[in-house]
Simulated scan of single mutants.
Amino acid sequence: MPTDPRTDAYIEKQADFAKPILRHIRARMHAALPEVVETVKWSRPFFDYKGHPLAIMSGFKAHASFGFWRRDALRTGQEGEAMGQFGRLTSVADLPDDAELDEMIRAAAALVDAGEGAIKRKAKPAKAEPGVPPELAEALAGDAAATATFDGFPPSCRREYCEWIGEAKRPETKARRVAEAIGMLREGKRRHWKYEP
Results as ranks from 00 to 15, higher is better:
Thr90Asn: 03
Ala114Val: 04
Lys41Ile: 01
Ala128Cys: 08
Arg176Asn: 15
Leu89Trp: 03
Thr39Cys: 04
Trp42Tyr: 11
Gly80Pro: 02
Pro96Tyr: 03
Lys127Thr: 13
Glu172His: 09
Arg159Gln: 13
Leu136Asp: 09
Phe47Val: 00
Gly166Ala: 06
Ala141Gly: 09
Phe150Gln: 02
Ile56His: 08
Glu129Met: 09
Val37Ile: 11
Leu101Met: 15
Gly87Pro: 11
Gly152Asn: 06
His63Leu: 10
Ile25Gln: 03
Leu89Met: 11
Gly87Trp: 02
Glu135Thr: 14
Leu54Arg: 13
Thr76Cys: 04
Arg186Ala: 12
Val112Asp: 00
Ala146Gln: 06
Arg71Lys: 15
Trp164Tyr: 14
Leu140Asn: 01
Ser65His: 04
Pro125Trp: 00
Gly131Thr: 14
Arg191Cys: 13
Ile105Gly: 02
Lys174Gly: 02
Met29Asn: 01
Lys13Pro: 08
Arg159Leu: 02
Phe66Ala: 05
Val37Met: 01
Ala31Phe: 00
His63Phe: 15
Ala179Val: 12
Lys127Met: 12
Ala27Gly: 09
Phe17Asp: 05
Ile182Met: 11
Val112Phe: 07
Met29Gly: 00
Arg158Trp: 13
Gly142His: 12
Arg70Cys: 14
Leu185Val: 01
Ala110Phe: 07
Leu33Val: 07
Leu89Glu: 02
Trp193Phe: 15
Asp4Arg: 04
Ala15Arg: 04
Glu38Cys: 08
Ile165Tyr: 02
Lys19Leu: 03
Arg28Val: 04
Thr90Met: 04
Met83Ala: 14
Leu74Pro: 12
Glu79Trp: 07
Phe66Tyr: 12
Glu38Leu: 06
Lys122Met: 09
Ala108Cys: 08
Gly183Phe: 01
Glu38Thr: 10
Pro130Met: 00
Glu187Pro: 10
Asp8Asn: 06
Tyr49Asn: 03
